[in-house]
């Protein structure tokens, strides 16, 4: 399947995962018995080994956030299977679901919305402990050590405050502390710095990296920003309109992108030198409507290299000589 499949079993396995969202039907569609859907994810197969840090990159609307939510069982797939540590997410309920929740956590895009405005910081960070049934006497200690992990000094200053009294960077540290307080194995970070001031982004990124190394986390970073991903992840998965178009080592993807879409993404990474001449982006237009994706290759109507076969045949995700996976007829 892929050269990236690790020797031992992957921590998270996705097999042909499909997620369709029903859209409201018009009268004529009801009469004709049609069920239009948004194809948010169409056949994602992915293995994430224990301790890996992988990035999922793509434009807004490509399904990357949906993929992250599926990995955490915050929504159910319409088809395919997801397994965490060998157990199908599908079958988790009651105690097994609670055990999964203790191990898999999420860092949110918008820290201003990720904390209940009526909860003090202490209560917010202690909530996972409460839900996991950990004795109250242990809460204060565990909250304190989670706070140390995210480098929020002066504990006493924060614990009794409410979210609106903290800055974005502080809030994101609190959100991370809440995610770490149970000592999880798996962390999904959905655009963890996109809502923050540029000045605090680097600090949060460094913290994510540090925490991951210190706790040996398996991490998935969802982002639209290849530059950020370069810093955090050894492996990158590029998505386009609900499908994986390229998957491989980040360095390889940045230096030697194979898929025309990945090339466009790499070309779009900002360059610090304003005088440097830049070639125009090789692609134009917008992501097509996910209700009616193009036939064959989903990228073909924006692809500068599209040819007849692209409209007829869906390109399979093939492993290339350089050791990564690409879904493009040119790379056949």
């Amino acid at each position: 399947m892929s050269t990236l499949v690790p020797k031992e079993r992957a921590l998270l396995e996705l097999r042909d995962v499909v997620k369709h969202f029903p859209v409201s039907r018009s009268l004529s569609e009801i009469v004709r018995g049609r069920h239009p859907v948004v194809r948010a994810l169409d056949g994602i197969t992915l293995d994430i080994g224990a301790g890996d840090a992988i990035a999922i990159v793509g434009e807004s609307g490509c399904g990357k956030t949906t993929l992250g939510r599926l990995m955490l069982k915050l929504t159910e797939p319409s088809g395919g299977a997801i397994a965490f540590d060998g157990a199908a997410l599908d079958g988790l309920a009651g105690e097994s679901l609670r055990a999964f929740r203790r191990q898999a956590q999420l860092v949110f895009q918008n820290p201003f919305d990720a904390l209940n405005p009526r909860f003090t910081i202490y209560r917010a960070v202690a909530e996972p402990l409460l839900n996991a049934g950990i004795a109250k006497s242990e809460h204060a200690d565990r909250v304190a050590s989670a706070f140390r992990r995210v480098h929020l000094p002066d504990l006493e200053r924060y614990l009794d405050r409410y979210p609106h009294q903290l800055s974005g960077g502080q809030l994101q540290r609190v959100v991370l502390a809440r995610a770490l307080v149970l000592g999880p194995r798996f962390l999904v970070a959905d655009e963890p710095v996109s809502m923050l001031d540029v000045s605090v982004r680097a600090g949060i990124l460094a913290l994510l990296r540090e925490v991951r190394d210190a706790m040996g986390l398996t991490a998935v970073y969802i982002s639209h920003d290849l530059a950020l991903v370069r810093y955090l992840c050894e492996r990158t998965v590029v998505m386009y309109l609900g499908t994986v178009v390229e998957d491989g080592p980040t360095a390889e993807i940045v230096r030697n992108p194979r898929h025309p879409y990945t090339r466009a993404l790499v070309a779009a990474v900002p360059v610090p030198d304003a005088d440097q001449s830049r070639s125009p982006l090789p692609i134009s237009g917008n992501v097509p409507d996910a209700r009616e994706p193009p036939s064959g290759c989903r990228f073909r109507d924006r692809c500068p290299h599209a040819f007849a076969r692209c409209a007829e045949e869906v390109p399979a995700l093939r492993t290339t000589a350089s050791g990564h996976r690409v879904a493009c007829h040119l790379d056949g």
Partner: peptide
């Protein structure tokens, strides 16, 4: 649909706790 409700779910809060506490 607020993120903090999702956060409560991901930290293992059951639906009654989400409904009545959050």
């Amino acid at each position: 649909e607020r993120a903090y409700v999702e956060a409560a779910r991901v930290t293992g809060a059951n639906q009654w706790r989400i409904l009545f506490v959050h």
